[in-house]
Amino acid sequence: MFLNTEGSKPIYIQIAEWIETEILNGNFAVEEKVNSQYQLAEMFNINPATAAKGLNILADEDILFKKRGLGMFVSPEAKQQIVKKRKEQTLKRLVQEVVLEARYLDVSERELIQMIEQANQKGDEEGT
């Protein structure tokens, strides 16, 4: 397992995102136990306190819940929370970047939307 240690994202955020992706993929089901901070530390070669920080973020966002002495589990509303968070944060930021770049290049809103539609159709074809 490799983390991007040079990147701007703190390691604990990367840990949180890795677990989120595993939940979205269905690798962790609702009510299932996720890796402990020690297992994550071993897997990603990081300090267990950093791993714990990643887990705690997800607990604060109701994506995971704690069972005392047993560990962290996937909460029933996990997927919903992750989708909501990523839409509001990640997707919004990416769209902002796209819009900014389009402005630099004098790409009109119409043209930009067309590009998005094209990309979306292509994605559909590949998906089927």
Binding site: L3, T5, I11, N45, I46, N47, A49, T50
Partner: peptide, 9 residues
Amino acid sequence: LNEIEDLLE
């Protein structure tokens, strides 16, 4: 520091 920072708390 870049070599060891992931290990540190």
